[in-house]
């Protein structure tokens, strides 16, 4: 067997893995032919979330029409839209007994509606089959097109999430066909047009080389348009071809960013290395509802 130096990943990257629960979850999902962002993006929290019976479903995949350099989702020729997929997500939500479900998608720049209709169908069917489940969508930027955003807004998800991913200066280096200003515009449009009961959320990764000032500027930009929730987590480079990891950001900085974000008025902030956009999303909504 080949020898290599001992792992150098930081201590907090240690996660426990419950094989039985992950097997159970995979069995359920494979039976329904669904993709989870957990598995597709190789998420570090997969073991914990699957262990707790939580998953984030990724629709319209598995291939993405964009090739962002931080991302582990396969870039490739898109598949035809699966008309039964919304039903299967709703059925999986039911079988798992989820009280909060997250639905995200790959980018579908090839489709006339950029994938908005599939989000709407999925939201509607989840709600029909699971009337007590709260629904969070994590959407692409829909190229900033208001008619696509209107459709998803009208389906009234409880949380509308669209990720900024990183600060302004790094955005063109890591995102493909997406801009800082388009993402801000998306969040502003949703905030201005969605019902007051819809929370607007975004998330960023740290460790790409951003400075404190840039992170605070991002927070200010988000609060200027009244974004409600912010998630901050560590970028983990998926493979050698992806954007190079610049830094394992120390825990202290996450605490500082948490305080700064709260001070600026975000209603909920999750700031910790293993935080991902949908990690503990249910707890976040409960905190705001005061349950």
């Amino acid at each position: 067997m080949e020898k290599k130096e001992a792992p150098k990943k930081p201590e907090w990257l240690k996660v426990t893995y419950d094989q039985k629960k992950v097997d159970q979850m995979n069995d359920l999902l494979s039976g329904l032919k669904l993709n989870t962002v957990c598995a597709e993006a190789n998420c570090p929290n997969l073991g914990e979330c699957f262990g707790n019976g939580t998953a984030s479903f990724i629709i319209l995949g598995p291939n993405c029409t964009r090739a962002c350099r931080f991302c582990d989702i396969p870039h490739g020729h898109p598949q035809p839209v699966d008309l039964l997929e919304p039903y299967r997500v709703a059925e999986a939500t039911k079988r798992l007994g989820l009280s909060h479900v997250v639905v995200t998608s790959v980018d579908r720049d090839d489709l006339p509606d950029l994938g908005a209709d599939q989000f709407v169908k999925t939201i509607n069917l989840i709600r029909k089959m699971n009337p007590d489940t709260t629904i969070e969508v994590l959407t692409p930027d829909f190229q900033g097109r208001e008619n696509c955003l209107d459709k998803v807004i009208a389906a009234k998800p409880d949380v509308f999430n669209h990720n900024m991913e990183t600060v302004r200066s790094i955005t063109p280096k890591v995102r493909h066909r997406a801009t800082y200003d388009t993402s801000l515009k998306v969040l502003k449009y949703v905030k201005d047009h969605a019902p007051k009961s819809t929370f607007v959320k975004t998330g960023i990764m740290l460790g790409l080389g951003e400075t404190d000032e840039e992170v605070y500027q991002l927070m200010d930009d988000l609060r200027a348009i009244d974004v409600d929730f912010l998630t901050i987590g560590q970028y983990v480079q998926p493979g050698p071809k992806n954007y190079r990891l610049r830094e394992w950001v120390p825990m202290k900085r996450y605490a500082t960013y948490y305080k700064e974000a709260r001070k600026r008025g975000f209603r909920f902030v999750a700031s910790s290395p293993l935080v991902r956009s949908s990690y503990k999303a249910k707890e976040e909504l409960e905190a705001v509802y005061g349950k």
Partner: peptide, 25 residues
């Protein structure tokens, strides 16, 4: 690729033999 996974035992018993070493692929 992304984490250090701690693998738990599925059984009660006594560890008899280790077949791999730290650093092995």
């Amino acid at each position: 690729d992304k984490v250090i996974s701690q693998v738990e035992s599925q059984e009660d018993g006594v560890l008899k033999e280790q077949n791999v070493n730290t650093g092995d692929t």
